[in-house]
Design a protein around this nucleic acid. Structure first.
Lengths: 189, 189
DNA sequence: GCACCTCTGGACCGAACGGTCTAGAGCCAT
DNA sequence: ATGGCTCTAGACCGTTCGGTCCAGAGGTGC
């Protein structure tokens, strides 16, 4: 569809991320991914010998890496955990908005909906754990008390708010998270 | 597959809920639902003239009603909002456990993954709003301050924790919610 | 030139998909 | 018994699915 900015492999992976997030693993056909990537079937099975399942794992991994980068960006210059978390929520809200298609969580859409495969479940779990550890790292670095709990809290609320945002087609609930979950306990009226 | 406990229509709807929650809308074929319900194709299209889409809407509605009932049960005899919320988290955790298949949220799996249809999106939104209003009602009845905010907070965290529970195949994160989100602000060490 | 290798292009396949259609079973009222 | 209704039963349809296969384009080293 669009121009060819990168290698065929990268185009396939990137478009797979986009489409899987929109419609889930089973909701997207290979034909659509190939058309969007302007690639023939032979290329797909050259780069991903096991076909759709391989592609999904690669897509989930790529999406996970992008989120890890977003986490790092959010906390890099933040003086406090609260501020870093706020950055993250706002970045994700903006990310949600610019997609224009109210995409789902990259991991849920790709891996939960995937073939009922132990490998997929484990991959999803390890990706979530990776996010959790990364956030907890920043929390620890910023001397936040109970860093693991705080990290889990942040990710749980983001995950839930993202789902609600999807239903409402409105990312405001993501932006409202910090004042509700990261703020001092009883600051607002 | 199993015995016929109810009308064909009810069996179809109930099995649709079960299967859609396990594998999402596109992950389940009509053949599987029909086999599980011991019903022929003609029956499905008699009760649901628009086929799979109709069935999905009916399934989502049924699942939503079941959750509304669980909400009411949780808050019925609870003296405080905190206690009602705790009941809800524990009931859902048990529900998650007994399924044995780490099913997803009934609405997400059925409606987000469904055909890219305005009707489906709106239905998902109205179902979420229904849950929110129901919880807020109980909060108001129990004199909880800021009932709407508290209801939204509870549902967001449940939604997020459910996703994490699915990845981990362990419902403990749901059971741990109350002490983290519903408790007094800084009670634990 | 030639051999070699990576990658592309697309025809082709059987299976599964959602959906249509008609025959008739079973039941009730007349 | 007969006509009319609801619901079941499943054959059948065209389409799309993921996957296989092979011919050959294009580059690189010799």
């Amino acid at each position: 569809m669009s121009t060819k900015p990168a290698s065929t492999r990268d185009r396939l992976t990137l478009n797979a991320v986009k489409l899987f997030r929109q419609k889930g693993y089973h909701g997207v056909g290979l034909a659509e991914i190939l058309a969007e990537s302007d690639a023939p079937k032979g290329s797909l099975y050259h780069h991903f010998p096991n076909g759709k399942a391989d592609l999904a794992v690669a897509a989930a991994t790529l999406a996970s890496d992008m989120l890890l980068q977003t986490i790092d960006d959010s906390f890099a210059n933040a003086p406090t955990f609260r501020e870093g978390g706020t950055n993250l929520c706002f970045k994700l809200a903006k990310f949600f908005d610019i997609s224009g298609t109210w995409d789902g969580c990259p991991v849920s859409g790709i891996l939960f909906d995937g073939p009922e495969n132990e490998v997929f479940r484990d991959h999803a779990n390890s990706i979530f754990t990776g996010w959790l550890n990364r956030v907890a790292e920043h929390a620890r670095r910023l001397n936040e008390p109970r860093p693991d709990e705080k990290a889990e809290m942040l990710l749980i609320t983001i995950q839930g708010a993202w789902t609600l945002a999807r239903a409402r087609r409105d990312s405001d609930v993501l932006r409202a998270l910090p004042s509700k979950f990261l703020g001092p306990c009883e600051s607002e009226a």
